[in-house]
Amino acid sequence: MSALETSEALASHSPADRRVEVKGLSKSFQLARTTIEAVRDVSFDVRRGEFVALLGPSGSGKSTVLNMIASLIRPSGGEILIDGKRVVPGKATPDVGYVFQRDTLFPWRTVGDNIGYGLELAGVPAQQRKERIAECVAQAGLKGFENAYPSALSGGMRQRAALMRTLIVEPQILLMDEPFGALDTHTKIDMHEVLLRIWEREQQTVLFVTHDLGEALTLADRIILFSARPGRIKDMFTVDFARPRDAVKVRETPRYAELFQHIWHSLGEEFVKGRSA
C-alpha cells in the first residue's frame, strides 16, 4: 500500500461535498464479432472545486469514462451522479462544460462568434454577448483575432479559443479530454498557466484526462491512475503542491521529482501491458 494513497481521505468527505459520483461504471463495445471491455467497475468521487486528473495509457478507458460522465456515451453498467442527480445519456447536463482533445471550433464562425456560441444558444442579447466575448478574447490572449476564422489560427490559439467557448457559459464542472495533447511542449505549458489562473479564480470542479504524467502533476489535486484495458482504477495519488502553482516552477521542485518517480513506475507498467494487449 502506498503512503500517498488517499482512499481513507476520500471516505471522510461528507456526501454534500461530492460533486461527481461514479459508481461501478463499466462499458463494453461491440466491434465486429468481438466484445471489447473498455471500462470495468470504476468508482470514484470528486469533491466540489477539486481538480482531478485521470491518468493512464491510451486504451485505458479514461476518455470513455469522461464521455460517459459527459452523457455522450451510454454506460453498460453502473451509474453517474452529478450533484446527486443521475446523468441521462444523450442529454447534456447543465453546468457541465466539455473541452475536446481536438479543438472543435466551428470553421464557419469567426473566433469571436465561436466563443460566444454558448451565449447565443442561451439567447443572451447581442450587446451583452459582445462584452462577454471581448472579456474572454482578452483573457485568452486572442485580441485582434476576433474576426479571424479558426483556420487562420495556430494550434495553441485554437485550443485557447475552444477553452473560452466552453468557459464563457461558466460551467461549474469542467470535463477535459486531453485538451492539450496535440500541442508542442512550450505551448502546452503556456496552456497550463492559462488553465491554472482560470481555475484558481473560478474554482470549477475539473476532471482532466491525460496520458502525460507531468501535466497531471502540474495541474491536479489528485491523480486517478487507470490500468491498461480493461480500464480499472489502479491507484490514486494526492498531489499536494501549494496553490497557486506556477506551471514552470513546480516542475523544478524536489517534491515534483519524487512524485513523478513514484507514479512513473506504476504508469510504466500499464504502458507495457497496453502495448502487449
Binding site: 466539455y98 444558444l121 467557448r165
Partner: peptide
C-alpha cells in the same frame, strides 16, 4: 457533440 454539450 460540442454544440449539444453547450446546450444546443
Amino acid at each position: 457533440n460540442a454544440a449539444r454539450l453547450l446546450g444546443a
